[in-house]
Computed example of a mutant assay.
Amino acid sequence: MGIFGRNDKQSQEQTGATVIPHGTHIIGGINTRGTIHIDGKFEGVITMATYVIIGKTGEFYGKIEAENMSVNGYVDGKIDCDEIEILSHGKVRGDLKYNHLTIEPNGLFEGQGKVKNYTLSSRYKHVTESIQGKISHDK
């Protein structure tokens, strides 16, 4: 039996929302299967979350590993999520790993992005070498 007469399995299945309100600044880590909504400032690590929401006044600096993420505030860090949505007021700077990425008009992303479990090969180097060879031979 767990706390208040619940067994451990029931306690682990129950997930709620963690809310960091505007005006609150937290430094640390959160490991949850639930939802995290940030309207304040969080510096640190978030792991295992089902859904991370960065509200318009929210700021996040650090590393996030979650299933889904929605950004309408500011994020700076390393993000590993299945689905990432950058809304019209959202600004993301850093490294993203994702399966699906959506950026609304006026949403901003600056950094590196990589689709999980997918490799897209580039011919850029080959083309630039080929062009350089032709430019050199034309003289």
Rank of each mutant, 00 (worst) to 15 (best):
T57P: 02
I20D: 05
I86N: 06
G40S: 09
G29S: 15
G77M: 10
Q12N: 14
I84K: 01
G111T: 07
K9C: 00
T128Y: 00
E13P: 00
G111A: 09
N106Q: 14
K56W: 01
V19N: 10
V75Y: 02
E85W: 02
K56N: 12
V71Q: 05
C81V: 15
G94P: 11
Y51E: 14
V75D: 02
T119P: 01
I86C: 08
H126R: 09
F4Q: 06
I84H: 02
I38A: 04
I36T: 10
T15R: 11
E85H: 06
M1L: 02
G94N: 10
G94M: 04
G40Y: 05
F109V: 06
L87S: 10
D95M: 07
T50M: 07
S88F: 00
N106T: 13
G107D: 12
C81N: 06
R123F: 09
I46T: 06
E129R: 05
E85G: 00
G111S: 04
I54H: 03
M48H: 13
K78R: 12
K41C: 09
I103C: 11
K63I: 09
F42P: 04
K97R: 14
Q14I: 13
N68W: 10
A49G: 09
N99S: 14
V45F: 07
T119L: 14
S70R: 13
G113Y: 00
E110P: 00
N31Y: 00
T15D: 05
S122L: 06
G5F: 03
G111V: 03
G28M: 08
Q112D: 11
G113R: 08
E129Y: 01
I86Q: 08
P21R: 04
G133R: 07
G107S: 03
G44M: 06
R33Y: 13
N99L: 12
I20R: 05
D80N: 15
I27P: 00
